[in-house]
């Protein structure tokens, strides 16, 4: 997020169009940053609702039916999902951080982003397919119900992450210069929007990884 993206502090007066454009680029960059954080916040509220359901029903233990002994999703679903989301997030986060610092080669970043998008996609597919093989009836206990309710939402979030990363990937494939710091690309709206999106995605994958970890702890570790 180099300040240089705004054509600020130029000495010659700007015409209306250039002036407006400079201001809007600054605003757009800020919008991506605050928008992605706000999106994380609202998603967190939604997952917090799910976590509330988990702990609330756990504490009530209505009719002694919170959870039957040993009821848990199969490890061959939950572990791969955890590994894929954590790995994908780490990969994207690290390479994008390098990219934004100007120290990543575009091709490295492309490969990392592609792999990361793939990892989230596979995680989503595993989770969706896993819903068909949970080994328990959705309504058998409170635990089963919360699991059946929350995990598809999480899978949708994985899918959404994969989509987001894919748009960045496709953008760079199509227009290589959006990642370069050279003029004239530096001051272009295209570059601002691409980098804004990348910065947002960088925050978002961390959130999804965190959710993944928490859900794993709740459903597979905590007993």
């Amino acid at each position: 997020m180099a300040d240089a993206m705004v054509g600020a502090q130029m000495d010659e007066p700007l015409d209306d169009a250039a002036y407006n454009d400079a201001i809007e680029r600054a605003a757009s960059r800020g919008s991506y940053w605050s928008g992605s954080r706000l999106f994380v916040a609202l998603s967190a509220m939604m997952f917090a609702g799910g976590a509330f359901a988990f702990f609330y029903l756990h504490s009530l233990d209505s009719s002694g039916m919170w959870r039957t002994d040993g009821q848990a999703p199969p490890d061959y679903v939950s572990v791969p999902v955890l590994v894929l989301t954590l790995g994908g997030a780490a990969l994207f986060w690290g390479y994008t951080r390098r990219l934004l610092r100007g120290s990543a080669v575009t091709t490295d970043w492309l490969v990392a982003t592609g792999v990361s998008a793939g990892a989230f996609l596979v995680a989503a597919i595993i989770q969706f397919v896993g819903m068909l093989n949970t080994g328990f009836f959705p309504g058998s206990t409170g635990y089963a119900s919360v699991y059946v309710a929350i995990m598809p939402v999480f899978a949708v979030y994985c899918l959404g992450t994969a989509y987001w990363l894919e748009t960045l990937f496709a953008r760079v494939l199509r227009v290589r210069w959006v990642v370069s710091d050279e003029m004239p690309a530096r001051d272009s709206m295209e570059r601002t929007m691409f980098l804004g999106s990348a910065v947002g995605a960088k925050a978002f994958v961390v959130f999804v990884a965190l959710v993944s970890l928490i859900l794993f702890l709740l459903f597979s570790v905590l007993s």
Binding site: A53, L57, D61, S62, S63, M65, W66, R67, P138, G139, S140, T141, G142, Y143, A144, S145, V146, V148, A149
Partner: peptide, 9 residues
Amino acid sequence: TSLFNVQQG
């Protein structure tokens, strides 16, 4: 699911 069903947790 039985999120609101008191007989099933």
